[in-house]
Every structure is written in C-alpha cells, then in structure tokens.
Write a protein that binds this DNA or RNA. Structure first.
Lengths: 214, 214, 214, 214
DNA sequence: GATGAATGAGGCTTCATTCAT
DNA sequence: GATGAATGAAGCCTCATTCAT
C-alpha cells in the first residue's frame, strides 16, 4: 500500500520512518499526529512522506501492517503449537512469556498494536482490520480444538465462548503488563519479571480451574 | 466542573446538551468532534457551549461524569451486594442481566462509557479518570472479599489477580454485547436475549470452574 | 450560492469583499488568486471568507454572478430596444457608447466579465455559465429580427451567422476599448472619447455596408 | 530558448515532449499543468525537463513558439498572397479552408494557439507575445493594402479599423470551428465540411457587403 | 444570558525545482 | 546526459474560541 518509492528505500530507512510514525501515533492519536513531526524525527523532509504514502491515513494503515509483520517475524515462531500432546495451559504459559519478551524488546510497537486491537483508531481500522481479528480467532480455535482432543480442555462449552473467555483474560494480562511498560519506560528489572511470572502462573491456574471456592 | 450557567439550566436542556455531546464524541472521537454540531443538535447556539463550559475538553470530561452518574442512578442500585450470603456468581449473573438492560435502554451512553474505559480518549481521561478505576476496583474487592468469606471464592489467589481475571472476562462479555448493540442498532429482540442469557451463564460457569478438562 | 452569513452582511461590506475578490482574480487568475489577499484587502479575516463561501471556487462563481448583476443594474436599462422602428445600427451606436461608460465607471468589473466571456477561467465557468451565452444570443436574435422586420437588416442571411458576425465585431470593439482601459488605468480623457466615437461609427458603418470596394 | 540539451535531441523526441506539454497546458492551464505528467506522457524523466528548459514557464513559452512554427511550416505557405490582382475575399476564402484543414490535422496545437491568442495565459505571454500580434497585424495590413490598390477594398476606412473588423469576424469564425472541434473530437465528417463551407461563404459575403438591408 | 459572526492559528497536501547517482 | 527521489515553500481550509450585539 505504500508507493514503490518507499518499498525501494533501504530497510533501515523504512524502519526509521515507520518507528517515527508509530511513536507519533501512540503519543498523539491519529488526528493530532503531526506529519511534520514524523518526518523530522525520521530525519526526512515532510514532502518525502508524501512520496512514500498517499496520505496520513495510508501511513497509519501501513504502520499497523508493518508492526504486525514485525512482531510476527520476531516473536511469531513461538506462537505455533507444535506438539499435539502439549497441555494447552503450558502453551499459554509460553506465549505469555513470549509477550513479556515482546514488550521488553519492542515496547512502542507492542503498545501501538495493542491500542489498535483495543479499538482506539476504530474509524481507521475497522474496515481494513477485521481480517486480522479473524486470523487470531482461527488461531485460537485451532488451539482449543487441540486441547479438546487431548483432554486438556473441557468439551461441554461452545468454542466461541471459550475464545471469549481466553481472550478476555489474556487481554487483561497483556494490558496489565503493558500498563507497567507504559509507565515504567525501559527499565523493567529482573525482579519485576519474577513477580510477573508468578502472576501469570496464577492467572493460568484461574483459566484452568476457575475462581470458584472448594 | 461546568459553569453555573449550565447548572442553572432546566434539567431537560442540560440533558439535551449532554446527549448531543456524547453522540458527537462516539461518532467522531474527541479531536474531530465538532462543537458546532453539538450545539446544533442540542438546539442551542455555538457560543452558548462556551457559556456553559470552559472549552471542548471540559465539555468532554463532564460528559463522562454525567454519563457515569446517569448510569449509576438508573442502574446502579442493582450493583450493590446486599446479601452477604449470596453466591457471588449469582451476583455476577444479576449484574450481567443488568448490563443487558443498560445497553437496551441507554445504548449511546453505555457505548460512550465503555469507550472511555477501553482507553480511547486516553490522553483526556488518564489524569482525571484514574479515580474511577479505583472506585470500581474497590467495588470488586469488596465483592471478592464477601465471596472469600462465604466460601464461594477460593482463597489461595491474590485479590489483585482475581480482579484482573474478573474484569478481563466481564469486559469481554460487555464488549461482546456491545458490539451486537453497535451493529444492530435499536432492534434487539427477545429471542436474542434468551441466547445471550445462555451464553452469560456459560461464561460464569467458566469463571467459576475454569476451562480445564476432567 | 454564498451562505446566508454573506447575504446578511451590509451591502457595502458585501461589495468590498466582491470587489477585492474580482481584483485578485483579474490580477492573478483563479489558481494563483490568494484567498488571504482577498480577505486582507477586503479588510476581513481569512476565515471569514469561508463563513461566506464554501470554497474559493464558489467565491469565484459568485463573483461572476455579482458582476453581471451589477452591470445589468447599472447599465442594463440602455440595452433594451424599445422602439421597433429604430434603425438597429443606431441602436448599436448607443450600446457602444454604453460600453464606454461601463468601462469608464466600472473598469475592473467590466474587464473581469470580459475575461470570463473570452474563456479564461473556462474550466470553472463552462458548466454554470453556458446559460449566460444563451441569454445573450437570444437577446441579439431579438434585435436581428426587429431589424429584419423594419428593413434595416438584409434578410438573405441566416440569423445564426448574423449573430456570429455581430458578436465578432462587437467583441473586437470591446476588446479594443478594454485594452486601452487595461493599460491606461483610470485616466481616459475626453479627447480619447471623441476619438473612440469616430472609430465606433466607422466600425458600425462596416457592419452595415461591409468593407468591399465600390 | 530551450537549452542545447533539448536542441540536440532527435526531432521526434523533441516533438513528443512538446506535444505532451501542449496537451497538458490545454487540459489544465498553466498553473495546474503538472511537469510530472508532461514528462510521463513524453516518456522521459521529470528531471530531464529541467535539463531541457530552465523552468515551467520557459517550457510553456517554447511550446507557443514551437506550435506557431509548426503551423506556419505545415499550413503557412497558403497564407501568402501571391497574386496582387487576387480579390482579397477570395483570399479569405482560401485561408478559411486552410484553417479547417489545420483544425482537422492538428487539433491540439490549433486549439492551444487559439487559447494563447484569446488571452488565456495572459500573464505569461503578454511580454513575449506582443511581437506576434505585430507580425499578424502587419500581415493583414499588407493584404488590406493590396486590396485597396486593386479595388477590392473600400478606401475610406482607416486601415487600423479594417484590421479590427477583419480579425473580429475571422476570430469568431475560427472560434466557431474550434468549438465544434473541441466538442466533436476527431470525427468531423465530410458532410460537416460542406456545411462549414456554406457558412464561411456567407460570412465573407457579410465582410464584403455588410449586413445592412436594401 | 444567548446568539452567531469573526478570528486566525495550525495542518495536510501539492508540486516545481534541486540533487545525488 | 538521464533519472527519479528529496526538498520545502506555499496555500486552502477547518474549527475552537472570542466578541459584539
């Protein structure tokens, strides 16, 4: 969706532009994001942005795509459930740790994408992004089915609702991690991580056995 | 927070202004929300808005407060856990039904408030709204403690994480209902409600016993 | 076509705006005409222009209408052929003198309208202005028919071609006068007018009897 | 006026560039004419335009010159009055037919040049083009004098006014033909031409004997 | 207090021209 | 000499806020 001019740029320069845009978007939202700022921080001329993208909206949309691609490339390999016999809660544990890494290494981008998924920028993404939701639903569906087959997931509940349940909880986990990330800036120390791990394990326990007494 | 001029207005006129503002905000977001539109639809002059509120931001902030107050007045009584012996999952069931009613009767306002809580409008609400989160956390904390005392909630999990767990799931439920509301417009029929009720019960079952197999 | 805000303005202010716009358009053409300049010279804020008109194009289009209306009001009475027995060449003589007056008293506006008719601004006026051409053609048609009836115009030539002939010559006359006006600025002296009158009479003679020898 | 780089180009390439420029100018006028478009359609790089011409204005000015030269080369031979005894109205007839051919064979360029003469592009051509008017005035002057000498033109009217009269009418004829050309596109059929010829003869008759009755 | 016109800062976008390859 | 990406000035338009009635 960007013009060839952008595609032909050296990858590093593309990256600089995208990161600058993403930063501006998470700081100011779409409307107040300033194309001039984006250009300045990327170290290019304002006009150049328009040689790369049709307009601000396209720049935004591509920022989303670029972010998702980057996250998938960098962290996506861990998201595949290889072992059909694996307890899916173990799997959740691994993906959660993966999230932590993601946040540690790509704070801005992870925040940006979470915002997109949370529905800030609604008006912009709704049309073009619904397919993303579909992808992630299918992905979860697959995991649930594996779980149902190998007995780690109860079979009496509709898949659809299980997805709701899982995404609800995992979103909350991510949000929780994210808020810490937003506020703390870069300096998340190891001690924090130990704490997080405990909490994640507790939440997975809740996912598994619920919060009911006795 | 609005000026006295606004407070002195007949309640119906105040309401007209607030609903007009809320509608504009959910349709266009804060930046693109148009003060002129708000005034027109409220049936007043643009200048009057500035006799009532310092500026657009204050109008927004008061829209949030006004919405919360309205929802609490209209639906809040049901949110209080009167009976210390009540199973808190029964309580969840009742509050969920409450949500459904809320959505049916005050679609715009419920959507608006959900958007606020979801973090669209971040930059605007963060400071002033953190107290709201606190309120609702305390509210949940109280329920959890009641549950722990009467045995309907397990005791080995940190309150804090239980809150995360509950809000994650219940948010997802609301979001789910809300999306239907957003798309369907007014016409939610009884048949739909039966369906919703089943789903809510299933989700509460998950909250209670988890999704683990066996 | 302007907004009510403009219509409600005191006539003098409207006039100031229109004359400022017209001046800018004849000086710089449509594309290079600067809305800021127009506002400055009219003594109003740039934004006000947009309270009066949807955009620059509408401002232009209304400038045309306003100019035509003004010219018709101020000079149009003389353009009506009252006496059916009048020799139409006498009538041409009178309208030519009328033109001279027009140019003397409303230089800018006359120049502007001539430019419009000459087809500068084509892209802007074509659609909306074709009706004007029609009006003036019908007007001439009427005069020609009167002439044919009372014998002052030969009957063996198609009306359509007579119109071409007349407009060709009269346009050239106007253009000739206009160029002088453009270059001389305000100071056309009486002596010039005597000269013009002679020339006009000679051209009317040509219209009447042609340039053929013997 | 173009740089040597352009002059050294193969004629066909020069022609491609010029025709592309001319097309853009008649389509969009000078201000909105897009140098990038011109380059694209000419099949060269945008930067190359600036190796050939100092700037857009020079490109425009040379387009005018190139067009006039082309028309003179291709159709100009017929414009010379060889036979001193020729009736100048016969001569007009021939030049009119010549115009028709010109329009048929070089529509764009003829339209472009007519626009230039009509005064669109005023600000650009005024200085540099006044010499062209002079040329064509002298050219007409010569014809008129021949006519006065051989008796085909009356002698009691000032040369200057005769020029006005002739150019007025002949411009109108050309404009008339041109408008048909603009609207019809390429497909002017022979039947049309017969019609045109009749009309031209009638107009020449008017030039000769005028439109006066009796 | 209500009105709605006036204001002007601010931002996106265009595109002629320059520049590096 | 050719290319096409980079540049940045310039201008239209929006709209929150102010002001005069």
């Amino acid at each position: 969706m960007p013009k060839d001019t952008f595609i032909n740029l050296p990858i590093e320069k593309q990256e600089k532009v995208m990161r600058s845009a993403i930063n501006e978007f998470i700081k100011n939202g779409f409307e107040k994001a300033n194309v001039g700022n984006i250009a300045n921080i990327a170290g290019i001329a304002k006009g150049s942005i328009y040689q790369y993208f049709e307009n601000k909206k396209e720049l935004f949309l591509y920022s989303v795509k670029w972010s998702i691609d980057l996250l998938l490339n960098k962290f996506g390999k861990n998201l595949v459930l290889h072992d059909k016999e694996m307890d899916i809660f173990d799997f959740f544990y691994h993906t959660s740790k993966n999230s932590m890494e993601q946040i540690r290494e790509e704070r801005e981008i992870t925040i940006f994408i979470q915002d997109v998924f949370l529905g800030k920028y609604d008006n912009l993404t709704n049309e073009s992004m619904s397919y993303i939701t579909n992808i992630s639903e299918e992905y979860l569906l697959n995991i649930i089915n594996v779980g149902k087959e190998n007995g780690s997931v109860r079979k009496d509940i509709d898949d659809h609702l299980l997805i709701l349940f899982i995404t609800g909880v995992s979103f909350k986990i991510k949000e929780y991690l994210m808020n810490k990330a937003r506020n703390q800036g870069e300096d998340i120390i190891d001690e924090d991580y130990e704490q997080y791990e405990k909490e994640i394990n507790a939440l997975i326990e809740l996912l598994k056995h619920g919060m009911g007494g006795k």
